[in-house]
Design a protein around this nucleic acid. Sequence first.
RNA 1: GGAAGCGUGCCGGAGCGGUUGAACGGGCUUGACUCGAAAUCAAGUAUGCCCGCAAGGGUAUCGGAGGUUCGAAUCCUCCCGCUUCCGCCA
Length: 418
Amino acid sequence: MLDINLIRSNPELVKKGVSAKNINPQLVDEFLVLDKEWRELTAKLDNLRAEQNKLSSERKIDEAKENKIKIKGIEDKLNETEKRREEILMSLPNLPFDDVPVGKDESGNVVIREVNKKPDFDFQPKNYLELAEKLGLIDIERASKVSGSRFGYLKNQAALFEFALIKLAMDTAVAEGFTPIVPPVMVKSKMMKAMGYIDRREDQDETYFLKEDDLYLVGTSEQSIGPMHSDEIFNEKELPKRYVGFSTCFRREAGSYGKDTKGILRVHQFDKIEMFSFCEPEKSKEEHGLLLGIEEKLMQALGLPYRVLSICTGDLGGPAAAKYDIEVWLPGENRYRETHSTSNCTDFQARRLNIKYKPKTQNLKPKTDYVHTLNGTAFAIGRTLIAIIENFQQKDGTILVPEVLQKYLGFEKIGLSS
RNA sequence: GGAAGCGUGCCGGAGCGGUUGAACGGGCUUGACUCGAAAUCAAGUAUGCCCGCAAGGGUAUCGGAGGUUCGAAUCCUCCCGCUUCCGCCA
């Protein structure tokens, strides 16, 4: 949710930001009209209520009865206006930072840097799925039998890899001051809405919803970590509050029929370790850097070739003011694929969730203010596994285990006999 | 899933139709006393929204949403949460 005062005082700025995100800026004007109406009705209603309180305390019952009817009329009108005003407000996305590249869609994303050399094979590198099936690491066929398309079984060393990756990510994040958690994977629709992930129809279609229980399955644990502190006020010294959560994630992949249909690159269910920060507004850019830094550190620990993208305005999504993706090089596909994403959502989610903090300003007004929220992937297990298999494959079809994981796994290589 | 009870401010805890935004106690902040601290005393101590340059004024809020009433923390309905007992259960 945007700051209403900002829309009122600087509509042009808001329009510009909204337009950059491919949202019709006319909504801003519509909002202002409704907001004006809302304020007028509010003033009218408050006056009538003041009158009512007065009459009532003076026991002027008959006059109060009449006044009550007027109140009811204004109330109904106000409710209707308020509802429409709220709808528009909720449909306005967060404004992108000035330094975010402007672009219409993902083609406008900017590569910031490439890290680690792509592996130089003296043979034709294979696709991960071919290797994995041969080594008994992934079973798609049976998953399809049991659950349908876009599911997979991780087996043998691959299953063990999952836990090693979790441990590596957890250890790394905990060392940076993150609190490890395993959050719920079902969240109330109210919270899902507050996080800004079901504002648009496409978003809703992407999410599994349990109607009977009014619960959504999370598409990322961010959705259940963010609302943890809703309606809470942090002390300044409690910030930044950092969490690293492990959870399964569920995505319907409704808009991606026919895309990446093979294997486990794009599935309905995968496990992910996610970082989440609540911090002071002035420090959110710095915090964003920290999250990206950890992501890169993890990729470097594995020795995977990757590149970092600054996501352009049109590809940011609703809640983010800035976003960086990491894409890993997949030699089997001969292209980069996304493994990480980190967003600074500024106060957009905090407003809806009502998460504030109390600045420790000695004198002057100790007014509370909204925190900033940020999130970032530590590891999405499936895709990381894919990257490891493809990048560390050997001519004989075996796969070397990245050194950092060896201590967690107890083996150095995945081979046919191991 | 069945039965009962409970949800009040930072915390504890009154209030159960009429100056109750809310007694009382604790905490916290400030001031006094003190060489300092403790103790004691005094004052202060919620938030949203609207109007206003401000001072301030108005309004709303006692789990949430409706309803009854001139007037509701107090009565009614539904929902949510918590506790206890029973059932079921990884």
